[in-house]
């Protein structure tokens, strides 16, 4: 499977052998401190020897120094965006070449032995990204998992030279634009956040991308104010507006609990400024008495 290769290169979570029982989640909640995102799966990763690590890093050095020097040049020459006006937009991802489609990371529950869904993300005939596959809601009979059936694509984490995180900054824009052609099923947009503390590593701002279905393209305007906070797939009680300058990556998931094939054609993802949109956060922000006692 093509996606497995990408995952092995870019994802910290290691896909295990299909035959082994899926127990990847079991002890996560007992650990108090994670040194870096994904570290809770550390026992699944093979540690490399220091010699290998040094050799690998030395190989990376010239390329990274080149990147860094380019960044320094940009810093003095570049013309940064100071303000945007009504209707200004920025195309974040345009799925018109193989490179970008390959860069996006595809995960399904099958990869983590948590289900049987299959998917692929390829370049279609019209030079658009084609996310298609089969959502299988059959629960694996290991006695642990209660629900199954998801497929996800996400952008790679945006980095600068030396692998330093460089989150997307959308503070100048109010809406996200998606030009898609779906099959009538709802997809979930996930904006993973670049956060500092370990309990926040799984913070995602999410909203649903409803598709119309049929042969016509649709342009979905989704205000950033509508995105709500979730962590590991659960809506959080303490909500806050998205910090638009701290978006680590973009993702799209299908997990509507319906068994069957799906197909989403995606042309581009963009951010746009709409000055008429004054809403800060779509959900109530007044203080209430906490419903938990802790």
């Amino acid at each position: 499977m093509q996606s497995l290769k990408h995952l092995g290169q870019k994802c910290v979570r290691n896909p295990c052998h299909p035959a082994t029982p899926a127990v990847v989640f079991v002890r996560t909640a007992l650990d108090f401190f994670h040194p870096k995102p994904g570290a809770e799966y550390a026992d699944r990763l093979k540690r490399k020897k220091p010699k290998q690590l040094i050799r690998k890093s030395l190989k990376m050095l010239p390329e990274e120094i080149h990147k860094w020097s380019e960044e320094m040049k940009d810093k003095f020459v570049a013309n940064p965006i100071i303000a945007t006006f009504h209707g200004d937009y920025e195309v974040l991802f345009k799925f018109d070449n193989n490179q970008i489609v390959d860069d996006w990371i595809l995960t399904t529950d099958r990869l983590f032995s948590e289900g049987k869904s299959q998917a692929e993300f390829v370049l279609g005939q019209n030079k658009t990204g084609l996310f298609r596959g089969f959502v299988n809601t059959d629960v694996p009979k290991d006695g642990i998992i209660k629900q199954a059936g998801y497929c996800n694509i996400r952008s790679p984490i945006k980095t600068m030279s030396f692998g330093r995180p460089n989150p997307h900054d959308l503070t100048n824009y109010t809406h996200l634009l998606f030009r898609v052609r779906g099959d009538g099923r709802p997809y979930q947009i996930q904006l993973s956040m670049d956060r500092y503390f370990d309990v926040q590593f799984h913070d995602q701002y999410i909203y649903t991308l409803f598709t119309r279905g049929g042969p016509y393209w649709q342009l979905a305007h989704i205000p950033l104010s509508k995105f709500f906070l979730s962590s590991k797939g659960r809506i959080q009680d303490a909500q806050e507006r998205i910090q638009a300058d701290k978006i680590q990556n973009f993702g799209l998931t299908i997990a509507d609990g319906v068994m069957g094939p799906f197909q989403l054609e995606i042309d581009f993802i963009a951010a746009i400024k709409d000055e008429r949109h004054k809403e800060e956060f779509a959900y109530e922000m007044y203080e209430t008495t906490s419903i938990s006692l802790l």
Partner: peptide, 8 residues
Amino acid sequence: VTRRCSPA
């Protein structure tokens, strides 16, 4: 259920 806990 809605706290920052694992789906597990």
